[in-house]
Design a protein around this nucleic acid. Structure first.
Lengths: 192, 192
DNA sequence: AGCGCCATGTAATGCGTTACATGATTAT
DNA sequence: ATAATCATGTAACGCATTACATGGCGCT
């Protein structure tokens, strides 16, 4: 009956919130609006998700909220603490593993989207390079899986599988292009 | 303090399990293996997810389990009840709405993958046609969102957004091809 | 005699969803 | 004046995750 210590993890939503307050302090309402207005809205904009998440992060000492505005019409803006800054960077620099590509691709995309200006460009380049490698290997595995005659598999099932493969192929092509874009930017910087 | 009646919903995992036992009765272990071995494994293969889900479905009267095997080394196989069959078909025939495309695309793919042999082909064709229409409209909205200069948006954020758009473009192309495949099959059937 | 697989479960925990509530401010 | 928006919250609920546990079977 020995149970491991919870060690207070941060949820994906938590990291998303932390990433969004890295440059400027933001309120819960600001964050909700960002989730509704941008199409990257993979997160819910419901207050029942965001406010508790902010309170959890504050209780963990990763962010700190301060009330702004004239006592009524209060607005609580949050900013990262030093510990929060360290934790955000640690998460952004985590290696890209095969299993992340297979079942947590959206988390990888989120991590990438928050990197700019938070970690040095070399880290972004390393991330994209590893992502391309893992995606290439996984796509080739999926292709060989599709190769087999798939006896007994219904047409719609086979097609759905193909849909997944195409999604990964698109991600791979995107990652290659993104890598090229970043390398071009690096080049420009060196010249300056 | 009036709270709406829970009306006992079925989770996505529940529908996936029901879809997988439509043709043949299966055990919980069979289902776990399917999740580990096929790359459509968007679901967890953990027993803590599957067995409780099966028990919930049974409690709702949608599936029925019967013990097979010589009293030890028991194996409990589940099959759909009449109510379960109706509920599965009802779910499969649900309309394709814009908001499903935006934030529940994986559920749509799951529904499609389970359709073959469960609902008539005309329903599959209608599903794909609606999916193509919704995806086309959403992709064009995303493109116009990307058009704007996006002042202040960091490079990685912009690129991540593009990654999402590319994913949707790939899904759209896939849906068109799948539609063509199904129409071809229809054609062959008529000729026979 | 021990390892790995077959097969089914349970308990604690965390967190997202849905649905409520409250009060201020701005627009019509 | 009243509707919409700003702004922040809480409570019930369901379900996935993680980490346990149990026992049989087959191979070496």
């Amino acid at each position: 009956m020995i149970r491991t210590v919870p060690e207070s993890r941060v949820s994906i939503l938590g990291y998303a919130l932390m990433g969004m307050m890295h440059k400027h302090p933001v309120s819960g309402y600001d964050l909700r609006k960002l989730f509704t207005s941008t199409p990257l809205a993979y997160f819910s904009d419901s207050p029942g998700a965001i406010y508790p998440a902010l309170h959890r992060l504050e209780a963990q000492g990763l962010i700190r909220g301060s009330i702004e505005g004239s006592r009524l019409k209060r607005r609580k803006v949050f900013r990262l603490t030093t510990a929060g800054n360290i934790e955000l960077k640690r998460w952004l620099r985590l290696p890209v593993r095969r299993q992340d590509v297979v079942s947590r691709m959206s988390e990888l995309t989120l991590r990438f989207s928050l990197m700019d200006g938070v970690v040095p460009e070399i880290v972004v380049l390393r991330f994209l390079t590893a992502l391309v490698a893992e995606l290439e290997s996984y796509v080739s595995e999926l292709h060989s899986f599709l190769q087999f005659p798939q006896t007994g598999m219904p047409l719609s099932g086979r097609l759905a599988l193909e849909s997944g493969v195409r999604g990964y192929v698109a991600q791979l092509q995107w990652a290659k292009d993104a890598l090229a874009t970043y390398k071009k930017r690096e080049g420009r910087k060196v010249k300056q």
